[in-house]
């Protein structure tokens, strides 16, 4: 019990510090990612997902990682709808739940208002939960891509070996991160501005 809490404390502190280091506690970097004007944060997250995926599934293959530590969530209509609602707020605020709390911790005052809004939103869901339940938006299976050996999760593609699929998907995430341009929107304008700056610089 105590050991679990010590692990929670160490992992949590390391995760919070990492979120701050990669720029995720800063709404400007979220905004630059979502406007595709600087994809450093997106590339960071893609590499992180890919790295973790490869380590988890390779570890499972060699028996080093307990398959029981996996926790797959159910897929239902609420996942898509909730994701879309979250997306609106994410762009408006520049925070998601974890980075909002961390933004507050690093002294951002607007993050305090985000967290307060978050508590209201979560309470709103607590009250309206029976409605979503009654229309069946929360019913679904905990699907994984392939069949993962040792796990009970149903596979979307039963013929696919789940751990191998995880390693391939992980590699694909890293490859996308490498291929993704650092700036996607406004590249021509940015290049022109840089050229202008270079031209005027020697004259000064």
């Amino acid at each position: 019990m105590t050991m679990t809490l010590v692990i929670a404390g160490l992992l949590g502190a390391a995760f919070g510090a990492m979120l701050d280091r990669i720029g995720a506690t800063n709404p400007n970097w979220i905004a630059r990612m979502l406007t595709l004007t600087d994809t450093n944060l997106m590339k960071t997250i893609l590499v992180a997902i890919g790295t973790a995926s490869i380590l988890i599934f390779a570890g499972q293959m060699y028996g080093l990682v307990d398959v029981g530590h996996m926790s797959v969530k159910a897929v239902h209509v609420g996942v898509l709808l909730g994701g879309a609602i979250l997306g609106f707020g994410w762009a408006i605020a520049g925070y998601c739940p974890g980075t909002g709390l961390c933004g507050l911790a690093v002294g951002r005052i607007d993050a305090l208002f985000f967290v307060a809004g978050g508590l209201v939103g979560a309470a709103g869901f607590m009250v309206s939960y029976p409605f979503w339940e009654s229309i069946g938006f929360l019913n679904g299976e905990k699907w994984t891509l392939g069949a993962i050996p040792g796990a009970d999760y149903p596979a979307a593609i039963p013929a696919l070996q789940g751990d191998l699929a995880g390693i391939v998907m992980g590699a694909a995430f890293i490859l996308i991160a490498i291929l993704l341009p650092r700036r996607i929107v406004g590249r021509t304008a940015a290049r022109a501005a840089a050229a202008d700056a270079a031209k005027t610089a020697p004259a000064e």
């Binding site: 994410w90 408006i92 998601c96 739940p97 979560a122």
Partner: peptide, 21 residues
Amino acid sequence: LAFAGGVLVLYGARLAGGCTS
């Protein structure tokens, strides 16, 4: 805007059963 964003993000996250993490 940050408050409104927070309402949407957490309502959406709970409806979805999880958030960005």
